[in-house]
């Protein structure tokens, strides 16, 4: 452990066989050299870092952060849009359904109204026909009654004539009428 350090030439730090004498770290002959190159190295690294590397990396990092933020915002926006589209679709579906129901109801109502009208018309016709028929029947009945009266008068006159009586037309008619009325009531 040799400790010769200061103020000696390089040869005192390195032995004749090329191996170190003591700690090369404490060979102060080499210090100026090391310090000079170290200062140069540090200055070069500092200049390179502060002028080129660090601004570039910080720009890249900022850009990436910005891109990520933008992408997230865009995704959020698209999500919102998708939601809106779905809502619009649901609304359209509901509207269509309501419309279909309305049209169905309308059609049904229209058909019902038509049907009612037709029904009414048919009823009226039926009623008219019935009335007509009744009238015809009444007429037929009336005419039949008249015929019966006539036949009865004639028969009564003939019978009275056959019985030998003088048949007074008016009396016979009155009698037949009375008789018919009594029968009828």
């Amino acid at each position: 452990m040799a400790t010769e350090t200061t103020g000696q030439t390089a040869s005192t730090c390195v032995g004749a066989d090329g191996s170190a004498i003591g700690m090369p770290q404490l060979c102060f002959d080499w210090w100026p050299n090391q310090i000079f190159w170290l200062v140069l190295t540090l200055v070069v690294i500092y200049v390179v870092l502060s002028r080129v590397a660090l601004p570039r990396i910080s720009a890249v990092l900022a850009e990436r952060a910005g891109t990520i933020t933008n992408d997230i915002a865009a995704a959020e926006e698209l999500k919102q849009k998708a939601k809106e589209a779905e809502e619009a679709y649901q609304k359209a579906l509901a509207d269509a359904r309501a419309e279909a129901q309305r049209i169905a109801a309308e059609t049904k109502a229209g058909i019902q109204a038509e049907l009612d009208a037709e029904m009414e018309k048919a009823d009226a016709e039926i009623a008219a026909r019935t009335a007509e028929s009744e009238k015809a029947i009444a007429e037929i009945q009336a005419s039949a009654m008249d015929s019966v009266k006539d036949v009865a008068k004639d028969v009564a006159k003939d019978i009275v004539g056959a019985m030998g009586g003088e048949a007074d037309g008016r009396t016979v008619t009155a009698a037949v009428n009375a008789r018919l009325k009594g029968q009828a009531s």
Binding site: A20, P24, C27, W30
Partner: peptide, 10 residues
């Protein structure tokens, strides 16, 4: 052993 030789400045 020359463990310190690696630190020689040349």
């Amino acid at each position: 052993f020359h463990p310190m030789d690696q630190f020689i400045v040349e």
